[in-house]
């Protein structure tokens, strides 16, 4: 695999962000979430100043919402049967549809084009389980508060417990793709580990919604 220029740039961005976070930490002891750049996630510790547990819990989710509302997530949690693509969230071309199993219609399956891994020379994203989130898990166009209520509702979250959500967001490798989308796509903010930490903190703090 060739290391291309855009990878280097992303790497550069991430490094800069880390330095910046450290800088803030050394000044104030803890960075507040509002100091965190859009493409990074504030760690749970940075919410310690919020005294009200429910408000703090909701704040964890608001921070996590930066991930959930990123195009990396909403494009394949679409409001219709048709996914979107790219940072501009345009309708997926070619036109593909959910199908009965979320993996496309009989003729144009996700796996026809999406392989087991990204193929960067063509800017093609891939994962062995590439598919759409079920219709009831549609996030496209919703607010973070709406997504929060939705994500806690087993009827609309794929029957998941809160514990399952930690695993889904924190460990699922298809979700993890959002942080490694290949050239030409903005990764989801932060890292999957940082997102997981926020989910854990949110669940442990009572899973309040903003």
């Amino acid at each position: 695999m060739t290391m291309n220029r855009r990878h280097l740039l992303f790497l550069g961005t991430v490094l800069t962000v880390s330095v910046l976070t450290v800088g803030i930490a050394s000044r104030n002891g803890l960075a507040t979430p509002t100091d965190t750049p859009a493409n990074a996630l504030a760690p749970p510790e940075s919410f310690a100043t919020i005294a009200d547990p429910a408000a703090r819990s909701a704040a964890y989710f608001t921070e996590l919402g930066k991930v959930l509302t990123s195009p990396r997530c909403t494009n394949c949690h679409p409001a219709t049967d048709r996914p979107r693509q790219g940072d501009a969230r345009r309708l997926h071309q070619p036109p593909v549809y959910r199908g009965v199993d979320g993996m496309g219609l009989a003729s144009l399956r996700c796996s026809n084009c999406h392989g087991g891994a990204n193929f960067d020379p063509a800017g093609m994203p891939g994962h062995p389980a590439w598919h759409l989130a079920p219709a009831e898990m549609a996030w496209e166009g919703r607010t973070v508060a709406q997504i929060c209520e939705q994500i806690k509702d087993p009827a609309r979250n794929g029957g998941r417990s809160l514990q399952d959500l930690i695993e889904h967001i924190g460990d699922d490798t298809l979700v993890g793709w959002a942080w490694h989308p290949g050239p030409g796509r903005m990764p989801a903010p932060g890292t999957q580990a940082e997102a997981k930490a926020l989910v854990i903190a949110w669940v442990e703090s009572g899973a309040a919604c903003p």
Binding site: T2, N4, R5, R6, L8, L9, D120, P121, G123, P183, G184
Partner: peptide, 13 residues
């Protein structure tokens, strides 16, 4: 050629 093509497409060369 192919590697260079991708590098020019994705980078600021």
């Amino acid at each position: 050629y192919d590697v260079a093509r991708v590098a020019f497409r994705d980078g600021n060369l």
